[in-house]
Simulated assay, not measured.
Amino acid sequence: MTRQKDLVGLDLGTSSVKAVHLQRSRNTYTLVELGIAPIHPETIVDGVIMDAATVSATIRQLLDEHNIGVKEVAFSVSGNSVICKKIKVPKMKKAELREGIAWEAGQHIPYSIEDVNLDFEILRETDPSDREMDVLLVAVKKDALNAYLAVISAAGLRAVVADVNAFAIENAFAMSRKAQLDEVVALVNIGAAVTNMNILHDGISDFTRDNSLGGNRYTESLQKSLGLSFEQAEALKRGEPVEGHSVADAMPVIEMTNGELTGAIRNSFIFYHSTSRSKTVHRVVLSGGCALLPGLAPYLSRALGLPVEIANPFQCIVADPKKFDSQYLASIAPQMTVAVGLALREPEDDAG
Rank of each mutant, 00 (worst) to 15 (best):
E65C: 03
T195W: 03
E99H: 08
F269I: 08
R24A: 15
E220S: 12
L63V: 07
A52D: 08
D130K: 11
A159P: 09
L63A: 02
G263Q: 13
N198F: 04
A179G: 08
E231S: 14
A19W: 07
S176T: 06
R345N: 01
L293K: 02
S205H: 01
I204L: 13
T219R: 14
Q335Y: 07
R98Q: 11
F314Y: 10
M336L: 15
I83D: 02
A311C: 03
G259W: 04
L181Y: 07
I49T: 00
E125D: 15
P313I: 06
R60P: 00
A333L: 10
A52W: 04
S56K: 05
R3S: 13
D210K: 07
A264Y: 09
H282E: 14
V308S: 09
V48L: 10
L226M: 13
G47D: 01
A351Q: 00
D350F: 04
A74W: 05
G9L: 08
A155G: 09
A168G: 08
A166Y: 02
I39N: 02
G79P: 00
D134A: 10
L149I: 07
A19F: 08
D6E: 14
L344H: 06
D249N: 15
Q4C: 05
S81Y: 05
A166F: 01
A311Q: 08
V253A: 12
D206M: 02
D206K: 04
E99N: 14
R60V: 02
T58N: 02
K322S: 13
G35P: 05
G69N: 12
D143K: 10
A155T: 03
H273P: 01
H21G: 01
P252L: 11
T219Y: 13
E33N: 15
A159Y: 06
M50Q: 15
G191Y: 06
A250N: 15
S112W: 00
S25T: 13
S246G: 15
G79M: 07
A333R: 07
I190R: 05
G69M: 07
N258M: 12
R345W: 06
A297T: 11
D349T: 02
P38V: 09
K5T: 05
S129F: 10
K85P: 00
D163H: 07
S246H: 12
Y299L: 10
N189P: 01
N171T: 09
V135S: 02
F230G: 03
L145Q: 12
L149P: 00
F324M: 05
N117P: 00
V281E: 07
L118V: 04
D325E: 13
A303N: 10
L236Y: 13
K18V: 11
Q232N: 15
S287H: 12
K71M: 06
Q61Y: 08
I152W: 00
R277Q: 12
E255G: 00
E42K: 12
G215D: 10
Q335P: 01
E309L: 11
H21R: 09
S25H: 12
T257D: 14
T2C: 00
